[in-house]
Amino acid sequence: MLDDFFVRALLAGVGVACATGPLGSFVVWRRMAYFGDAVAHAAILGVALAIASNLPIALGTLITALAMGLVVSALTERGHAMDSVLGVLAHGALALGLVAISFVPGVRVDLSAFLFGDILAVGKSDLLVIWGGAALICALLAWRWSALITVTLNVDLAHASGINPKREALVLTLALAVVVALAIKVVGALLIAALLIIPAVTARSFSRTPEVMAIGAVGIGALASILGLHASLQFDTPAGPSIVVAGGVLFVLSLMWRR
């Protein structure tokens, strides 16, 4: 079964959706959309570094994504305005990554695979990384769930209950870096944020508690992957963007549902 590239692609899409559902919900609640973008863009720099130093791509993207998350957190904590910091760092990292890749000698690198994903080329080892990483993220979020929700709701409320908001923010940054490393193969660095946000906001319209929204986002994300991949096969369109478009269609339908 795993020998069929299309089945592998479906499994990869659903696996990533399991991680982006709950994490994407936090991205939406905490208004971290551009934070997610910056972390994802930094991954291109990670690709260049990984190729140059013969490291696995996933490791390179994980490290640069994590570094970006920590730098942004540190700068905003010192009182820099969040959006301008992100504007500088997100695009700076993307541009630096593109420049750095051009310096990598020898092999010509297919940039579009990293910018827009290459889900149809997912191998068995990629699947292992994706499902392992998704399990790690879900376990991490489940462990910190109550504290994370409390911090997201109100920082002072968290302090009064003995919860350290900085530590919980670090958990989210870490999870975000892992998601970027997983999802870059599926939708590429430019569209990872879409995979985080679209399923979560779509699930919002029928949710009454944070938990329902997070699990609903997993379902919506998985559905978008399946629909997008089939559409891509049917109409011969690029797979990653097709998944995002399918998610967008589901979002529009959810708006009508709400009325």
Binding site: L153, N154, L157, A158, A160, R204, P210, E211
Partner: peptide, 25 residues
């Protein structure tokens, strides 16, 4: 400590029922 904050702005993106809120943390 039981803390009643000055204001609690619930982001419109976060669904939160009263029952769920009481179970925090």
């Amino acid at each position: 400590i039981g803390y009643v904050p000055q204001k609690l702005a619930i982001d419109a993106t976060m669904p939160m029922s009263v029952g769920r809120f009481l179970s925090l943390p």
